[in-house]
Design a binder for these strands. Sequence first.
DNA 1: CTGAAAGCGCTTACAG
DNA 2: CTGAAAGCGCTTACAG
Lengths: 340, 340
Amino acid sequence: MKPTVHDIAAHAGVSLATVDRVLNRRPGVKEATRAKVEATIDTLGYVRDVAAANLAKSRIYPLIFILPDNDNSFMRNLHAEVQEAINRSATERTQIQIVAIKAFDAVALVEALDRAREKEPAGVAFVAIEAPEVVAAALRLRAAGIPVVTLVSDLSDARDHYAGIDNIAAGRTAASLLGRFVGVRAGPVAVLAGSMLVRDHKERLEGFKQVMESDFPHLPVMPVLEGRDEPDRAEELVTAAIAAHPYIRGIYSAGAGNRGLMRALKTRTDSARLAVIAHELTETTRRALIEGTIDAVLHQDAGHEVRSAVRVLKAKADGLPVIAAQERIRLDIFLRDNMP
Amino acid sequence: MKPTVHDIAAHAGVSLATVDRVLNRRPGVKEATRAKVEATIDTLGYVRDVAAANLAKSRIYPLIFILPDNDNSFMRNLHAEVQEAINRSATERTQIQIVAIKAFDAVALVEALDRAREKEPAGVAFVAIEAPEVVAAALRLRAAGIPVVTLVSDLSDARDHYAGIDNIAAGRTAASLLGRFVGVRAGPVAVLAGSMLVRDHKERLEGFKQVMESDFPHLPVMPVLEGRDEPDRAEELVTAAIAAHPYIRGIYSAGAGNRGLMRALKTRTDSARLAVIAHELTETTRRALIEGTIDAVLHQDAGHEVRSAVRVLKAKADGLPVIAAQERIRLDIFLRDNMP
DNA sequence: CTGAAAGCGCTTACAG
DNA sequence: CTGAAAGCGCTTACAG
């Protein structure tokens, strides 16, 4: 039989309350007593029943998710997935609040992080912007003992965990696929991103350039087009780029706003095959994959990211370890053939 | 506040025991009482606290995993992942037994399934072999009220859930990548599989042929080489195939035994680039990806599959619904650039 | 510094 | 057919 707190108490000759104090490293236990109880825990091979503990604590986890109000499919989907998590609140003992803020706005993000801290939640998850003041705000949260998880886009060393993909690898993968799909013909390659202020896009570009330069020197990478993840702006930029460079061989869309990219591609008069790699499987990219306008889509599962963020925040709030393998967010590669 | 059984009891004017009977559809409740309680449940919006219920039941889930004793990295890893699940038994309230049987042996599998049934576990997971007698044995389990999950390789309509990838999509994906990587040069393509007795390999081949025939007619698919997932046999078969077809353009390794494939490729004297797609990221395929011998690896995460199987079996045993999106096992595509 | 008792939300014999 | 009471493995005031 699995030993319980009762067994520990009996064997160590103490009360349940004392066992509990030792188990939870609470103060007010004589060192000798603590040692005795810990020895018993070891010899009996006791493992705490977390479910029972939570029940006794009537523990609920108030969590705050700070999300940009970006109007693109990926962000809308991310909101929807957090909403799904809210629907599971009852069974997961969470109480999740969504705070929507202006996209790519570090000031708004800092303000939201500070407001969140005042509410003393069990944890905060947010889509990071790479800026010193954001790092500082995240550190203030952690200093207040509130676990912090970055979602989708990371922030170096200022968080407990990052729930998102490896974006350098994503960029490298995009380059490998694009280079191979183009083949031997030479010509420039365009890159469309949202903003260089967010780390995910910056890292994708970095990885992409690494591989293009080393493996496909006949396909020079043009200066990045910053579309702010807005379809209209993306359309303009890509249309102009295509007009200026008739021998363009491929496009890597590292951000969102692919509806605009699709419209721009339709204006192309050159019949030569253009290799296109984009991010995030949405209605737009799915259709483009089927039609053959896009060759491959790199994707991250927002549902996984949100569920992982919730699990990690709860675990961190309880001071429990995280199963790294289970929380790793994979880079999905979708071709026409393996779409879910 | 979330309503509890106490609230239901009070509002409906019955005892806790009666509420529990209604909640768990146990017999021995007057119809009128049942209706009254159910109405209260609805109006209060009660949701059962599964953790508390399990605690009260002291519920543990005895599960049986039947795995082939195949000596290849993938199967060894699968065993290891089940072992990991066993290590988590205490916290997950499971009690998992591994039954190892001879690979590709339907008789041994049927026997193991029947033995498992006699032990009356809360659920059974197994790597299926496509054969009528296996279907019958699986149905006997289900008839005995024991939930059945197929793992890695499926069995049509004879199980409650399949924890594995979509293998037709895997084959199609392999073809799309292979075809594009080869480019315009014509020549035959070889396929190495384990056995056509298991559905996963059969479906991969099916998907592969579909796309090769429709999209890459200049790359005819040679008759499948059945290596039984044994490295030595795979080496022989591939070496012979390469010798017989000097203009071979690509190889799709749909099964295991890639160590043998690697050895065979080393014997090739022709310097022309050969496109190779294999399955499962192991030490062998990882090294080959880095060296450039293999171009892409299609992969399934055995850890995910095992965790999913455990979750699903527990849920089914409790008559609970399964979150489909969470249990979907994705087809991972690894290039040199995005290996974990 | 330590312990006895009640309680978290459910289920389970047992009695009627 | 129905209910009162004890218990699952923990935690939490409260008292000493």
